[in-house]
């Protein structure tokens, strides 16, 4: 499987994602420059973490108008798998490919530590290899991860089961103390209604080798590969 990693000016987890795919997962990865107009023959797109355009105006607000975003939107519209990690999640929100918005962390502090996450929805191409209610240990590192959605959007998220990950205690309880940033309902990751676009604040690519302290990120990447293989020899954008 070929993963395309979109590099924006200010991306800084692009190489982490590249290594996780090549070494942690053993699959192909290539970088795509934000000025590219086409994606080539990639099977899955990753919008990596970082500070695209210095987070000027709002995190992701300017990157979302990068030339490549037209092709990203079209890829998503046709059902291609798109994974947005941290700043990539923020870009997907700004682009309207996922519902909601990000606010500054409630405590106004940058948080950088491992968190526990409960898998709320296993019925996605990104989580289907997880066990029911599995707790993942992944690191977060962000200043604007305070997920917000208006009441109508929140109702939609809950009714359609679009909340994929929530911050929890190590034993899986959803508590205020387990919430590192004040995110609404402890939401750490959401998908779109079609289930092919997924954004999350934690970094699965930084939990892809024992030496990093966790390999739980591989549940997400392996789920992607397994879903792509199920799609009759891999999904191709026509």
């Amino acid at each position: 499987m070929k993963f395309g990693i979109v590099v924006f000016p200010g991306s800084n987890c692009d190489h982490d994602a590249y290594r996780a795919i090549r070494e942690g997962l053993g699959e192909e990865a290539r970088f795509l420059w934000h000025k590219d107009q086409s994606l080539g023959d990639v099977d899955c797109l990753i919008l990596p973490g970082g500070f695209s355009y210095g987070d000027y105006l709002r995190a992701g607000a300017i990157a979302r108008f990068s030339p490549i975003m037209g092709a990203v939107t079209e890829f998503a519209r046709r059902g291609g798998l798109v994974l947005g990690i941290c700043n990539g999640f923020q870009i997907l929100l700004e682009a309207g490919l996922l519902p909601g918005a990000m606010l500054r962390n409630r405590a106004l502090k940058f948080v950088c530590r491992f968190v526990s996450l409960r898998v709320e929805n296993r019925n996605t191409p990104f989580t289907h290899l997880c066990r029911p209610g599995q707790i993942l240990k992944l690191p977060v590192k962000h200043g604007e991860g305070n997920y917000f959605a208006d009441p109508d959007t929140l109702r939609l998220l809950q009714e359609r089961d679009l909340v994929v990950l929530r911050y929890c205690t190590p034993s899986g309880e959803i508590t205020v103390d387990a919430n590192p940033n004040g995110a609404l309902k402890n939401i750490a990751g959401v998908c779109n209604e079609a289930g092919n676009v997924f954004g999350l604040m934690p970094h699965p690519e930084n939990a892809s080798a024992e030496i990093l302290g966790s390999v739980d990120g591989l549940f997400i990447f392996r789920s992607i590969v397994s879903s792509l293989k199920k799609r009759s020899d891999g999904y191709q954008v026509a």
Binding site: L57, R58, A61, I62, F65, L93, E94, G100, A101, L103, F148, A149, D150, T153
Partner: peptide, 8 residues
């Protein structure tokens, strides 16, 4: 389109 995010 850009300067404000109408969600928030």
């Amino acid at each position: 389109r850009l300067l404000a995010n109408p969600v928030i």
